[in-house]
Computed example of a mutant assay.
Amino acid sequence: MIKISPSILSCDFANLESECAKMKTAGVDMLHIDVMDGHFVPNLTLGAPIVKCLRPKNDLFFDVHLMISDPLRYIDDFAAAGSDLITFHVESDSDVQATIDKIKSHGIKAALSVKPGTPAEAVLPYLDQLDMVLVMTVEPGFGGQKFMADMLPKISAIRERANALGRDIDIQVDGGIDSATAPLVAAAGANVLVAGSAIFGAPDPIAAVPQLRQAAQAAL
């Protein structure tokens, strides 16, 4: 089943509550919350206090993506703020196993992400413990970048290994996802689509959600 996770990085932050409420009306499956520290990636966005403020206002599943150098240090904060799933990068400075363990200790879901330059093999040893793998289809840090089609074999490799292990985990893609690229990633094995400008930048963001879902579903 295709799941849609709009990236609030592309929303109108002056109207964050209403923008997120609009996504609930659209029937999305989760909200993708990008956290950047200005060090791991060259951009600086929001932190745990924003997640904490948004949590009482919206009961959607919070899909929190930590693009930060030391995620282990902040897991407690983001868990307490109301995250339902925390994704961190295999390329970060934190110990991968310790970070997975810390996320799981809070009773929430754990996911691992790989940048475009990192091979699928980096996440394969952890598939038996993960709820999701995020394959970046652009370089992390900024929205609106062009989709990197050479990431498709990576998606397929992770899906094939997960299937071989009998693990029906989610595979998420983030970067340049729209109605044209959604069928490509779905055919490769991804089932969770992060979209920012394709949804929040659409003339009708609410209508853009089912259109994106249908485009991906048609490839399955």
Rank of each mutant, 00 (worst) to 15 (best):
V133N: 01
S94H: 05
A122N: 08
A110R: 01
D84S: 04
A111N: 05
K115A: 13
I86K: 03
L130D: 00
V123G: 02
G143T: 03
R73P: 10
V135D: 00
S105V: 10
L85I: 14
T137C: 01
Y126W: 08
S113I: 04
A80I: 04
I86V: 08
K115C: 13
I108P: 00
H89M: 06
S105Q: 14
Q97D: 15
F78K: 03
D95H: 12
R73V: 14
D93F: 14
L127W: 00
A110D: 02
R73C: 13
T137F: 06
L127H: 00
D101L: 10
L124N: 08
D131W: 04
A79K: 02
D93M: 15
S113Y: 07
V90E: 15
A80P: 04
A111G: 15
V96R: 07
V135H: 01
P125L: 04
A80Y: 05
V133D: 03
A98C: 11
K109C: 10
M132N: 13
A120I: 02
D76V: 07
D77W: 10
I103D: 02
M132R: 12
R73D: 14
T99F: 08
G82K: 04
V138M: 06
D101V: 07
K109N: 10
A80W: 07
M136G: 00
D131E: 11
D101M: 10
K102T: 09
P71K: 04
K109R: 15
H106Y: 12
S113V: 12
T137Y: 03
G143D: 07
I75A: 06
I108H: 06
D76N: 11
K104F: 09
V96M: 10
E121R: 10
E139S: 12
G117T: 08
Q129V: 09
L72N: 14
S94C: 08
I75V: 15
A122V: 06
F88L: 00
E139D: 13
P71F: 05
D84W: 07
A110S: 10
E139K: 11
D95S: 14
M132C: 14
S92V: 08
I108F: 08
H106E: 04
H89Y: 06
G141P: 02
G143M: 03
L72Q: 15
V135E: 02
L72A: 13
L127A: 00
I75C: 07
T99E: 10
E121W: 04
A81K: 02
V96I: 15
H106I: 05
D76K: 11
D101A: 14
E121A: 14
E91C: 07
T87I: 15
V96P: 00
G143Q: 04
D95F: 11
P71L: 06
A79E: 09
F88R: 00
S92A: 15
S69M: 14
K109V: 03
I108Y: 07
R73L: 15
T118Q: 06
D76I: 02
I86G: 03
G117A: 11
E139Q: 13
F142V: 03
D77T: 04
